[in-house]
Computed example of a mutant assay.
Amino acid sequence: MTRSYPELAWLFASGTWADEESARLRAAFRERFCEYDDGRAAERVVRAVMLGEPLPEPAGDPGLVPAQTAGRDLLTPS
């Protein structure tokens, strides 16, 4: 996590964001906070809040997020 632009620039320049520890931390974050992130969460919010439609159940396995379904962490270089 960075708190300023210079820290963010250093993070990208250093390559630290691509190490195994960073990948593990991102995976732990997704597991804890992205249970229903299936690529359609924003659509469900708009339909429920703006259009008054009932909230449907998330499609597929709600524990999967796009990076996991692709079989790799999208932020880690191949």
Rank of each mutant, 00 (worst) to 15 (best):
T2S: 08
T2Y: 07
T2A: 03
T2C: 13
T2N: 10
R3L: 09
R3K: 10
S4P: 10
Y5H: 11
Y5S: 11
P6V: 06
E7Y: 01
L8W: 03
L8M: 01
L8H: 01
A9W: 00
W10S: 01
W10F: 04
W10K: 10
L11W: 06
A13V: 03
S14N: 07
G15S: 01
G15T: 05
G15Q: 01
T16P: 02
T16D: 07
W17K: 08
W17G: 07
W17T: 05
A18W: 02
A18R: 06
A18P: 07
D19P: 04
D19E: 11
D19T: 06
E21K: 15
E21F: 07
S22E: 15
S22L: 10
S22I: 07
A23M: 03
R24Q: 01
R24V: 04
L25D: 14
L25W: 12
R26N: 06
R26A: 01
A27I: 10
A27M: 12
A27K: 13
A27P: 08
F29H: 08
R30T: 04
R32P: 00
R32V: 05
F33W: 15
F33L: 10
F33I: 10
C34V: 11
E35K: 02
E35R: 10
Y36R: 15
D37E: 14
D37N: 14
D37C: 14
D38R: 04
D38I: 05
G39I: 00
R40Y: 09
A41W: 09
A41E: 13
A42I: 15
A42W: 11
E43W: 09
R44C: 01
V45H: 02
V46Y: 07
V46W: 08
V46M: 13
R47E: 11
R47A: 13
A48Q: 13
A48D: 02
V49D: 12
V49G: 12
V49M: 11
L51V: 02
L51K: 13
L51M: 14
L51S: 06
G52F: 08
G52W: 10
E53Y: 09
L55M: 05
P56C: 00
P56N: 05
E57D: 05
P58T: 03
P58L: 05
P58E: 01
A59H: 06
A59G: 02
A59Y: 10
A59W: 05
G60H: 04
D61Y: 05
D61M: 00
D61K: 00
V65G: 02
P66L: 03
P66C: 03
A67F: 09
A67G: 15
A67E: 15
Q68Y: 03
Q68K: 05
Q68E: 13
T69W: 10
T69P: 01
T69A: 12
A70H: 09
A70T: 09
A70L: 12
A70R: 15
G71W: 03
G71R: 00
G71I: 00
R72I: 05
R72T: 09
L74F: 13
L74R: 15
L74H: 14
L74A: 14
L74P: 15
L74E: 13
L75N: 13
P77V: 09
P77T: 04
S78P: 14
S78N: 06
